[in-house]
Amino acid sequence: MKDGPNIATLAALIGDPARANILTALMSGKALTASELAHEAGVTAQTASSHLRKLEDGALIARRQQGRHRYFTLAGDEVARALEGLMGLAATQGQLRTRTGPKDQALRTARVCYNHMAGEMGVRLYRAMQDRGTFRTTHSGLDLTPEGYDFVRDLGLDPDGLPPSRAPLCRECLDWSMRQSHLAGRLGRALLSRFEDLGWVARVPDSRILRVSRRGEKEFGRILG
């Protein structure tokens, strides 16, 4: 096909193992330095610099300058959503790079998906919110019902006061390990931040894993029923 989006170029960018490792590392939602990404990719700093330049030229990552330091992030929610979809497809097709181990189980229990909560806890939370009648379907996607507003406000968040963004308020995101949806969008981002502020979950350093505290287990148990 001569006309239309050129998916071959993007596929080639993502398809390189080192670049795929770089993009996966940035799915934590954190801004990382070139040296940190070189370590994640298992390549030299010079090679990582070449890969980062290609990913930046392809609009898959963005560079941020903080004083003398340079950091890299994913270019936006659309990139994160595409990567999560590819992870789900790879898992479905059995394309796993390592055998399941303790770290993999922790990732499946609760993890960061760019800027919202994923894994078993994320899927169960989204399902519980659906059961409570939190969402309604509109022509543009998902929106909160009056019951949904009450639920979110009970958690200490004001849905109308969330930071403005091009991202929708609520969006489904397919979970690669559970093969079901969890919540993304501005609300998904705000909920993860709120859970962290409350001490219900904490990020494991240098990982996408979310560790659920004892208090978090109790509170999530109350929400999940």
Rank of each mutant, 00 (worst) to 15 (best):
K2H: 11
G4N: 08
P5K: 02
I7H: 12
A8C: 01
P17E: 09
A20K: 09
A20M: 04
L23T: 03
T24N: 13
G29W: 01
K30W: 00
K30Q: 15
L32C: 11
A34N: 10
E36T: 11
A41L: 02
T44S: 15
Q46C: 00
T47E: 13
H51E: 04
H51M: 06
K54A: 15
E56I: 00
E56K: 13
G58C: 05
G58M: 06
L60C: 03
I61G: 02
A62M: 09
A62I: 03
R64N: 10
Q66I: 09
G67E: 07
R70N: 11
L74D: 02
L74M: 06
L74S: 02
A75G: 11
E78H: 12
V79D: 02
E84V: 11
M87Y: 10
A90H: 09
T92S: 13
G94H: 08
T100C: 11
G101W: 00
D104A: 14
D104W: 02
D104T: 14
R108I: 01
R108Y: 03
T109W: 00
A110W: 02
R111S: 11
V112A: 03
C113W: 06
N115S: 12
G119N: 07
G122K: 06
V123E: 03
Y126R: 03
A128R: 09
M129D: 04
R132N: 10
G133F: 06
F135D: 06
F135V: 05
R136K: 14
R136M: 11
G141K: 05
G141P: 06
T145M: 08
P146C: 10
G148I: 05
Y149V: 15
D150V: 13
F151A: 13
D154V: 00
L157N: 10
D160M: 09
D160N: 11
D160E: 15
G161P: 00
P164G: 04
P168C: 07
C173N: 09
L174H: 15
L174M: 14
L174D: 08
S177Q: 14
S177M: 09
S177A: 15
M178Q: 15
R179D: 14
S181K: 05
R186W: 02
R189L: 08
L191E: 08
L191F: 08
S193A: 14
S193V: 04
R194Y: 06
E196T: 13
G199A: 06
G199S: 08
V201F: 01
R203N: 10
V204D: 07
D206I: 00
I209P: 03
I209T: 11
L210Q: 10
K218M: 11
F220T: 08
F220E: 03
G225N: 12
